[in-house]
Nucleic acid binder design. Structure first.
Length: 262
DNA sequence: TCGCCTGTTCGGCT
DNA sequence: CAGCCGAACAGGCG
């Protein structure tokens, strides 16, 4: 489910349920999720407090003592809390058992999700060449993101190396709201349009966070609910939603509301 | 049975 | 180096 808003919603829930709680034990239900982890990775986390959480883009980090447990949710990863350790939600790959009888289940049908351990979130982000989190991005980041870019706005937004956190639905939602054609080259925007567009993307993300959004449960006025080919446009019913592929992803837009420039 | 899918990485091309 | 594409990862769902 997870683009920036969903991951931020998860981060807040984890803080609500588990901040400053002791991690009693860990159950690995599907070994694939811990692939690449050191053999005794659990010992770095178990019996320690959850001290703080961080999120950069779609990447979530939980700090226990000296190490951060990094959760990446892939396409279908999510967090489901239970209060009974015998109640294991479907597709649970990993469970963190806290001492307040809260069980944090990492569920993931498609198993593209991964965990990892890092000693520094910042070095992780540098190594990954991860850009600044969308919600922290400034006007100068917006200009850096779009200037001199021949590639489409959609493809630019999906790259995580200048501004991170935007995924497929958030990109389409923001492009629709900004009335920009997804194939518009970045360099076709004026600097003030670049700044305004970043602000639109941030607003969409803020609204989604405030609405506790998870994939498949968007606020009813969101364009994302209309991301179906040939469905009437929610703003102009005489137009039909079109589908194209950009940046390797299915992209939906309204050809009347979102004109290609020129 | 087939094609589609919220993310990311990689190789190969132009 | 920039850009683009397809494939791969895996499995549920219509």
């Amino acid at each position: 489910m997870p683009e920036l808003p969903e991951v931020e919603v998860m981060r807040r829930k984890i803080e609500t349920h588990s901040l400053n709680k002791v991690l009693q034990s860990i159950t690995v239900h599907d070994g694939r999720i811990e692939k690449g982890m050191p053999a005794h990775w659990q010992s770095f986390f178990v019996k320690n407090n959850l001290i703080e959480t961080r999120r950069i883009g779609k990447y979530l980090f939980l700090r226990f003592h000296d190490y951060w447990l990094h959760l990446h949710f892939g396409m279908t990863g999510s967090v489901v809390f239970t209060t009974n350790r015998d109640e294991i939600p479907q597709y649970t790959r990993l469970t963190l058992h806290f001492d307040n009888d809260i069980h944090l289940n990492f569920t993931d049908p498609r198993t593209f999700g991964k965990i990892d351990m890092v000693s520094s979130v910042d070095s992780f982000a540098n190594g990954k060449k991860l850009g600044k989190d969308l919600m922290e991005a400034t006007e100068s980041d917006a200009i850096k993101l779009f200037s001199n870019k021949k590639i489409s706005l959609k493809a630019i937004l999906l790259k995580q190396n200048i501004i991170s956190g935007v995924g497929n639905w958030l990109a389409d939602e923001a492009l629709f709201r900004a009335k920009l054609h997804p194939a518009t080259p970045g360099m076709a925007l004026t600097e003030s349009q670049m700044v305004a567009f970043l602000s639109t993307i941030q607003s969409v993300a803020e609204e989604a966070i405030a609405a506790d959004t998870h994939y498949g449960n968007f606020p009813s006025h969101f364009f994302t609910n209309y991301r179906v080919e040939d469905k009437p446009c929610p703003s102009d019913e005489s137009a039909k939603i079109q589908k194209m592929t950009l940046g390797g992803r299915a992209t939906y837009f309204c050809p009347k509301c979102q004109k290609f420039p020129g």
